[in-house]
Design a protein around this nucleic acid. Structure first.
Lengths: 132, 132
DNA sequence: CGCATACTTTACGTTAACGTAAACTTCCCC
DNA sequence: GGGGAAGTTTACGTTAACGTAAAGTATGCG
């Protein structure tokens, strides 16, 4: 009982809440390459994972080129020493960027908390306009 | 001895590693509004903070419109009840988005660690091509 | 004074990431 | 067999966020 799972473009579009145009565009950019049954595209689980990675990248503000790079990082492509070292270098750079993003998020969270608190204060001040 | 600190556009551009064009563009978008001494723009510490917030937003993948919204959140603008509630709602939405980004970052960090480990393995495998 | 440096305005150009429209094929269903 | 739903190709349009170039002004300096 093999998995044999495949997906139509519409299914994936619904699942990830994007348009079919978007998915075809990603194919145009060589980010995903579905099989064909006649004219119709047939997507594999691997394609689906790739889509997921792209959309996660988007949520983090990555360009498609950056996401492509990241995806390729997961397949070391049996390289030579220099390529492996270069890859590690890129990985390290990404790590540092992610750490920066972490710091940014924490700072922003703190500020949102403060802003929320000010709202709260303003609201309670509205309920008792004076000192009562 | 008042602070009286001001900045030229070039100073800010150098500090934040952006072009002066970029800073003028932000002014065009009403994100920052420097004073003028004659023709020349004179930036205040507040302008500088705004710039910082915009660039932090960019690192998190925010559009300028989103960063503008965030910046405005920090100045509740003595509103009425409904506006305050709407603001709290937006704050909450941002919080959820930030939490999603946190999860995305953690997943990505794990994958980078794995990829790095595979590089490491491939490199040591290169040093001893056989089992020695 | 002449020149460099830093500023200014105006305006057209560019890139990424799709949107949108038109015109077609395929398949299923009653 | 006439439609409707989902798929396809082709191609031009759009928006954000600046880049880039031209042409002018102000200021210090050797």
């Amino acid at each position: 009982m093999s998995k044999k799972q495949t997906y139509s473009i519409g299914e994936l579009a619904r699942e990830f809440d994007v348009t079919t145009r978007t998915i075809r565009f990603y194919e145009d950019q060589n980010l995903v390459n579905p099989a064909r049954r006649g004219q119709t595209r047939v997507y594999s689980p691997a394609d689906r994972v790739t889509l997921k990675l792209i959309l996660r990248g988007k949520r983090l503000g990555f360009s498609l080129a950056e996401s492509r790079e990241l995806i390729q990082m997961y397949q070391p492509s049996g390289d030579n020493r220099n390529q492996l070292l270069a890859l590690q270098d890129k990985i390290q750079q990404r790590r540092e960027q992610l750490n920066q993003q972490l710091r940014d998020i924490q700072a922003l969270q703190q500020e949102l908390d403060d802003a929320d608190q000010r709202c709260e204060d303003a609201l309670t001040a509205l309920e008792k306009p004076d000192h009562v």
